[in-house]
Design a binder for these strands. Structure first.
Lengths: 259, 259
DNA sequence: GCTTGACCTTGACGCTGCGTCAACCCTCCA
DNA sequence: TGGAGGGTTGACGCAGCGTCAAGGTCAAGC
C-alpha cells in the first residue's frame, strides 16, 4: 500500500497535485488507514499516470475525467483531436521562434529574404539611407505582425521599382527627407507622381477598390508610422489627398468630393 | 490617432489585454482626449506588437518590460535563452504526442517496438495469453511513465528469454495463472527457479546491489500492479522472500535475517 | 432634438492548476 | 522522550486575461 507521497513519486507529480485531483473528483479518494492517512493501490498509480499524460498534452483537467470514462472509439477520436491541437501548437511555437529571431535581428539581418532584396533594390535605385531605414523599420513591423502575408506583398513592391516614375519618386523623397526644411515644390512633384501612378494602376485594374477594410490595416499603420517618423509626410499625404487619393503605402480613391 | 480598439486590432490583441498592459505598467498610458478616451500614436502599435511577440513566445509579462529596456547584447542573450526554452517546449510536445498515441493504442499496437518484440518472444516461448497480457499492461505503464528508459531495459529482458530456466519459469507461471486454484507446489518450483536465477545473476555480477533506491521505483510498481491483478503472486513473492530475495520484476538480496 | 448602437471608462469577480503557508496530528527512530 | 519527517484540512496567491456591471460619449438617422 502506498502513501500519497509514494504515489506521487510513482507518477512523477507533486502531492499537492494528487490532492487537487481528489478535490475536483478526477481521481477517486482512496480508503483511509486508522490514522486518517490515504492509502493507495498500484491501480491508482496507473490512473494517475494516465491523467498526467493527458494533462501534459494540454487537456484541461475538466475534460480528462470525461475522456477516461468514454468508450474506446470516443477516446480515440478525442486523442486524435488532441494530437491535432498539439501539432498546431508546435507550429505556433516554431513560428514564434522565427519571430523572436527577427526581433533580435533588430536592424541587422534575418529579415525575410524578400524584404532584404527589396531594401537592396531601393539602395540600387538611389534611395537615401534615411529612406531605406524608414522602409526597413516599417517592414520589420509588417513582418512581425503579418508574417505570412509579407511573401504576397513583396514581389509586387520589388516589381514597382522597375518603373522609372517610381524610381524618380524615391529620388525626390530622398532629396526632401535628407534636407531639413520643408520643400513644397518637390513634395508637389512627388504627389503628382503618386497620383499619376495611382491612376495608371487603377486604369490597368491593379487597384481593386472592392476589397477595402480588413486588408487596409497594415498599410494604414505603415502610413501612420511614417508620418510619426517625419511630419513632412503629413504634408505629402495632404497633397496626395488633394489629387483625389488617400494613402501612401497603398492607395485608395477618395469618394468624389465637391471640391 | 488611434482609439484603443483600433490599436488592439493593429496589434492583433484584445482591448482588455491592452488595458491590462497599462495596469501592470508594461505599456505606458497615452494621452487622453477631451472625453477621457485614450489616444494612441503608431509607435504604441509597434510597442504592442513587440510585446505580443515576446508574450506569444511564452515570456512572462513581468520580464517583457525589462527585456525591452535592456541594451542590444542583453536583449540578444535573453532571446537566445527564450529560443532554447521554445525548442525544449517543442520537444516536450513531440514527446507528448507519442505518449497520447500510446494511450490511445491501448491494447493494440504502437507500443515501443522493443516492447512488442519482447511480447512476441514471450508468446514464442509458450507464455499464455493471460501472462502476456499482464506483461503488456505493465509495460504500457512503464513506457508511459519512463519513456526514455524502456530502451535500456528491454534488450536485457529479451536476452533473458534465451535462458531455458527462464522459459521454464514462464511456462510454470502460465500454467498456474490459467487455472483457478492456488497451486502451491508449482509456485514453490517457480520460486526456486527465481532464486536460482538471482543467485546466478548475482554471481556473474549482473545484479548491482549498490544502486538501489531511485531506480527501484519502476519495478516496485510493476510488482505491486501484478499482485493487484492476481493475488496469488503475493504468495509467490513470499516464497521468493523465504529464499532470501525480494521482488519479481527485478531482484534484490534481502539483508540476512535470523531465519 | 432624440433615439440607437457602437464605442469608451473604471471596478470587480472568475477561471486554471496548482504552489505555498498555517496549524495541527501521526509515526518512527535514536 | 523528543524531534524529524511524514500526514491532514483550509485558505490565500499567482498569471493573464475574460467577462459582467454600471455608467459616459460619439456618429448617424429620424
Amino acid at each position: 500500500m502506498l502513501t500519497i507521497s509514494q504515489l506521487a513519486a510513482y507518477a512523477g507529480v507533486t502531492v499537492r497535485a494528487v490532492r487537487h485531483y481528489h478535490q475536483i473528483g478526477l481521481l477517486p479518494e482512496p480508503e483511509r488507514d486508522s490514522s486518517g492517512y490515504r492509502r493507495y493501490g498500484a491501480a491508482a498509480a496507473v490512473s494517475l499516470i494516465r491523467i498526467r499524460i493527458l494533462a501534459n498534452a494540454g487537456v484541461p483537467l475538466s475534460q480528462i475525467g470525461q475522456m477516461l470514462e468514454a468508450d474506446a472509439p470516443t477516446f480515440a477520436a478525442a486523442v486524435a483531436d488532441i494530437d491535432r491541437q498539439l501539432s498546431d501548437e508546435i507550429a505556433r511555437l516554431e513560428a514564434s521562434r522565427q519571430q523572436i529571431a527577427q526581433l533580435a535581428a533588430g536592424d541587422r539581418l534575418a529579415l525575410p529574404p524578400q524584404v532584404i532584396a527589396y531594401l537592396d533594390r531601393l539602395r540600387e535605385i538611389g534611395a537615401s539611407e534615411r529612406v531605406v531605414a524608414g522602409e526597413r523599420d516599417g517592414w520589420i513591423l509588417m513582418a512581425a505582425r503579418w508574417p505570412d502575408r509579407v511573401g504576397d506583398w513583396m514581389p509586387g513592391k520589388i516589381a514597382q521599382l522597375d518603373d522609372p516614375q517610381v524610381v524618380r519618386l524615391y529620388q525626390i523623397l530622398s532629396g526632401v527627407f535628407d534636407s531639413d526644411a520643408g520643400d513644397d515644390a518637390r513634395l508637389e512633384e512627388a504627389a503628382d507622381l503618386i497620383a499619376g501612378l495611382a491612376e495608371q494602376a487603377y486604369a490597368s485594374g491593379e487597384i481593386d477598390l472592392g476589397e477595402v477594410g480588413q486588408d487596409d490595416l497594415p498599410f494604414d499603420l505603415l502610413d501612420a508610422l511614417a508620418v510619426e517618423a517625419d511630419p513632412r509626410l503629413q504634408r505629402l499625404l495632404d497633397l496626395v489627398r488633394e489629387r483625389g487619393w488617400a494613402g501612401l503605402a497603398r492607395l485608395e480613391r477618395l469618394p468624389a468630393s465637391p471640391d
